[in-house]
C-alpha cells in the first residue's frame, strides 16, 4: 500500500489557483524529491501533508490527501495527532530558544510525558539518529541557539525524530547550510530512509539525484512528471522536465 497519496488536489490562495489537479503516490520507506522552479507550488504541496497550510487565511483546497489510506482533511482528524505521525523540517533551522535537551523533548512534553528516564533515553536516541550526539552530549543544557547552522538543522531533525513519526517532510533542509553541513544532512537522509518515508523539496539537482528514489517535477502548479530518479535525470519523458534538469531554464 502507498504511504502517502494525493488525489486530484487543487489548492487556491484566494482566487489564485496554485495547485492544479495533482495526484501522486508515495511508497513507504522511500525518499521522494520535489523539484521545480521557485513558485511552482512544490512547498505548498508538501505542506498539504501535515496541514501546515491551514494557517494561511486565504487557503482553500479540494481533493483528497491520504496517509495510510486515511483522508487527513477529514473532519474528525485531529491535526495535533496527525503531526505526531508526520514530522517536518524547515528550510531555515528553527530550534526553540531553549536548551538542546528541551528542544528534543518538546514533542514528548506536549504529549504529557514526564518520566525522566524516557525523556533522557529519547534525547540520546534521537541525537544519535541525527548524528549529533557526539558533538553535543556534554552540553545538553546549553542553548540550542549557540550551535552552528548545520548543527541546528540536525537538531531540528532529531527533534522531529523524537516523537517517532513515520513520515518526515523536508522543505529545502540544506539550502541554508554550508556544503559540509549540507553533506551531513544528506547522509542523514540517506540513512533515515530505511525507517521513514521522506519527502524532500530541493532546488539542488545533485542533491535530488543523490538522495532520492523517485523525483517529482513541478511546474506552474502542476505535476509534470513523477518517476524513478534515475529516469527523471537521464531519460525524462517530458521535454520541460528535460530542460529543467539539464539547467536550460528555471
Amino acid at each position: 500500500m502507498n504511504k502517502l497519496e494525493a488525489q486530484n488536489v487543487n489548492v487556491y490562495y484566494g482566487a489564485n489557483k496554485v495547485i492544479n489537479d495533482i495526484s501522486i503516490s508515495i511508497k513507504p520507506n522511500s525518499v521522494t524529491a520535489f523539484i521545480g522552479p521557485s513558485g511552482c507550488g512544490k512547498s505548498t504541496f508538501l505542506r498539504l501533508f501535515n496541514r501546515m497550510n491551514d494557517y494561511i487565511d486565504i487557503f482553500k483546497m479540494e481533493g483528497k490527501v491520504e496517509i495510510d489510506g486515511k483522508n487527513i482533511y477529514d473532519k474528525n482528524i485531529r491535526v495535533e495527532e496527525l503531526r505526531k505521525q508526520i514530522g517536518m523540517v524547515f528550510q531555515k533551522p528553527n530550534p526553540f530558544p531553549k536548551s538542546i535537551y528541551e528542544n528534543i523533548v518538546y514533542g514528548l512534553r506536549i504529549q504529557g510525558i514526564k518520566d525522566k528516564n524516557i525523556l533522557d533515553e529519547t534525547v540520546e536516541k534521537s541525537l544519535k539518529q541525527a548524528a549529533l550526539w557526539e558533538e553535543v552530549k556534554d552540553k545538553l543544557k546549553n542553548s540550542a541557539l549557540a550551535l552552528s547552522g548545520g548543527q541546528q538543522q540536525r537538531l531540528c531533525i532529531a527533534r522531529t525524530l523524537a516523537v517517532e513519526p513515520t513520515v518526515i517532510l523536508m522543505d529545502e533542509p540544506a539550502s541554508a547550510l554550508d556544503p559540509i553541513s549540507s553533506a551531513k544532512v544528506e547522509e542523514l537522509i540517506y540513512e533515515l530512509k530505511n525507517n521513514y518515508t521522506i519527502v524532500i523539496v530541493t532546488h539542488n539537482m545533485q542533491q535530488a539525484a543523490r538522495v532520492s528514489d523517485t523525483t517529482a517535477f513541478f511546474y506552474m502548479g502542476e505535476l509534470i512528471e513523477h518517476d524513478a530518479t534515475k529516469l527523471i535525470f537521464t531519460n525524462p519523458k517530458n521535454e520541460r522536465t528535460q530542460n529543467y534538469v539539464t539547467g536550460r531554464f528555471g
Binding site: N50, M52, Y55, E80, E81, L82, R83, K84, G87, M88, F90, K92, N94, P95, F96, P97, K98, Y106, G107, R109, I110, Q111, C156, R159, T160, V163
Partner: peptide
C-alpha cells in the same frame, strides 16, 4: 519569529501549548 510558531505546530502542539511553552517565554 513565525518560524518558532511553525516549528511548534509541526511538532503537534496545540495553539495553547504553543503560546504557553514557546511564545510567552
Amino acid at each position: 519569529p513565525k518560524s518558532i510558531k511553525e516549528a511548534s505546530f509541526a511538532m503537534g502542539a496545540s495553539k495553547w501549548q504553543t503560546i504557553w511553552y514557546q511564545l510567552l517565554p
